[in-house]
Design a protein around this nucleic acid. Structure first.
Lengths: 228, 228
DNA sequence: TGTACATCAGTGAACGCGCGTTCACTGATGTAC
DNA sequence: TGTACATCAGTGAACGCGCGTTCACTGATGTAC
């Protein structure tokens, strides 16, 4: 997926070792490095929304103007990174779900994958979900990963709470999905920002959260969570 | 947006009427105007975290340097505003609860006050809860409004789910409170950012959310919500 | 085989912008003698 | 009563900074003849 370069001082460029220009025909290499650098900075920065074009250039060890050969501006680069992260998250959730044939296991796996990804990569989570909606980022894509991700979660939840599909309307399932998603989002957001406040372990909160939204016993969910 | 539109009299100040210096002994007037202007801008701005000192000065119609007579820097001014907003929110929740003697009504009133305040003032909500935790903002205060607000919510919820106080531990009640708060936070955050995505009415979501966390029938909650 | 030219992958200096912060200052108003 | 001085509530110009963006350019490498 992402173009991986050989590890020749991959991190920040130090003075004394000036970057070597790529040979002809290898212009796409810098593009990959820009994407990697932006991703790293977005994940790392305290406030990822303050990322600048010059920071990315510095991280790669390249002149600021060099970015314009590959992206029209910083926001295009960031959007590209976010798209990749979004797809990564959607893929992780899908893979986690596929390893759990049981409907409850499916929901638990998706929720756990979402929350753990968000907690592991606070900067990326904040950039993706902290401000404008992901749909804003995915404008123009035929299949926004956001809708896929969310649609699958709605279906997964409905398969637990209404296995026969006779007890609820599509609107009701949609609303239940929104509530589950917003609960997960709030949990991840505040968990990432909780500072010095004492917080229970993430899995304990996830157990109760999923228990509330599925109506299943906490013990069942805790067991599934531990297995994921 | 023609740049000519921005005259020297920018902001709330009209260009024909330059601000008159306050008379001696009335130096605190500007302080109040700075607070008001910062509050207005924080509530208004698309991204409140980008507020600058010069924007506040422009809004009041004063030289940027004039702010230093009243606050050491912008963050001190913002912290002051946030403290006021925080106290306002805590007061609103307390007042709403006091109008509802019933325990379930108490929870519903608090949650509704929280969510409606957050949805009515997206900029303030985002500034308060969007990044670092409120406890960071309230460092140094003997009684942080945050802990009061949250502690009252925990107690209010426990009064519904465990009226006798025999079924749960303090830790369990704390955890249930965190889950309720994070759910509210996620709901408000994503509601404020939902853009073009179709969303159910806020009260419908609140009804189900409170229903999940209290275990009470949706009809009861909807009735209480409508009355608040 | 040499050589002229084209292309590629960037560079480096410069531009104007808004920003936070500093500093000496300015006028109006009060107060002491 | 007049007048010298002190204080208050700011002002206005300047500083250096990092930023996004532009532009002419530079070397190395390929290609045509």
């Amino acid at each position: 997926m992402a173009p991986q370069e050989q590890d020749q001082g991959q991190g920040r460029q130090e003075q004394g070792a000036p970057r070597r220009r790529n040979p002809r025909g290898q212009g796409q290499v810098l593009r990959g490095q820009l994407i990697d650098a932006a991703a790293k900075l977005l994940a790392t920065l305290d406030q990822p929304e303050t990322l600048t074009l010059r920071q990315v250039a510095r991280e790669v060890g390249v002149a600021p103007a060099s970015i314009y050969g590959h992206f029209p501006d910083l926001s295009a680069l960031v959007q590209h990174v976010l798209r990749l992260r979004y797809e990564e998250l959607a893929r992780l959730m899908e893979q986690a779900a596929q390893a759990n044939p049981d409907p409850l296991g499916d929901v638990v796996a998706r929720c756990a994958a979402y929350a753990r990804w968000g907690v592991d990569q606070p900067g990326h989570y904040r950039t993706l979900f902290g401000g404008r909606m992901p749909t804003d980022l995915l404008t123009g894509s035929a299949h926004g990963a956001g809708e896929e991700l969310f649609g699958a979660l709605v279906a997964s939840l409905a398969a637990v709470t209404d296995p026969d599909g006779t007890r609820s309307t599509p609107e009701g399932q949609w609303q239940a999905g929104i509530l589950l998603w917003t609960a997960l989002h709030g949990l991840v957001s505040l968990y990432n920002a909780h500072g010095t406040m004492s917080w229970p372990p993430l899995d304990d909160l996830l157990t109760d959260l999923i228990g509330l939204h599925t109506g299943r016993p906490a013990a069942d969910i805790a067991a599934l969570l531990a297995a994921n």
